[in-house]
Amino acid sequence: MLSNRLSHLWVPLGLVLILGIMAAVRAPQTFTYVGLAGALLVAAPLILAAVAITPIAIAGRGGVDLSIGPLIGFVNVTIVVWLSENGITHPILVFAYAILAACAWQMLLAAFIIFVRISPIIASLAGFMILQGVNLVILSRPGGVAPEWLGNWGWGTELLSPVLYILLAAFAIWFLFQRTAMFQHIRLMGADERTAYTSGVDIIKARFAAHLMAGVFAGLAALCLTGLIGSGDPTQGNTLTLQAITALVLGGTSLAGGKGGITGSVLGAVAMYLVFVVLSSFNFGAISGFMTQLLYGLMLVFALLVALVTTAPRTRAA
């Protein structure tokens, strides 16, 4: 029965293996000590973004957080403009700010979804537009300097780096969260909200909790992104939305809710990164960026269709 619960992982696992082999052949430097350290650094924001939207997807109602990218961008530019430029650079303060800011946004989003009762995807769509604009207002073009200790992450020469510890901490948080009754409530709510409501689950708190978890991971993702680029970039985060959703869907988390976990999302994100590695090993010249765009798009469509085939006998969602 364990195999049943983990069956959604076969596709991303297979994908990671195939792409891993391709990467090993095409770009063997990826699998050296320095290569892995760099890979970890580059892939961390995407991995954490994919992890962040997982609990929201599990919570159901077709909830995909489109605003995740601009949110990560928002935390990034505000760390640089509001904190760093005002001399607030203490790691504890910056960490606390990143996580609290991301959580605050997620609470706002959750409140809209719960109390105004609008569809999560529309709420997050509006959120995307708002934050995208706000980010540009705060910082009109890439610039500024991240706190020094954070910027130093960007060298990416050590495997045992803060980025690795952040990822491990994120996994640990998820592992603990998964063992709580709350996680069970969120799964039940995502699978069938009416069953959850009528059997006494506090669906308001459960939805808030799912978004709160998303906020924590989004904050961590923003720290990793800031470490990676060492400055503020108002648009860098936006591209993460589509990539994170692709990773999530590739990882077998159902957008219909109730099913999935971060293992899939992480594998999905790793697969996305490997696609990028394999593609850059070819000399596409001017079109390499377009190639990535084309492939990411195709992968997203492919992932959705695979999910459709593997979960074919589904009862209609209400």
Binding site: T180, L188, D192, S199, K205, G258
Partner: peptide
């Protein structure tokens, strides 16, 4: 309820014990 309230994708035990735990702690 008149309508059979189950979450189709979850297991028998998860459905049987739906809502019995505390908010965070399992009973």
């Amino acid at each position: 309820y008149q309508e059979i309230m189950v979450a189709e994708e979850l297991t028998v035990w998860e459905n049987t014990f739906a809502g019995t735990d505390g908010l965070w702690r399992r009973k």
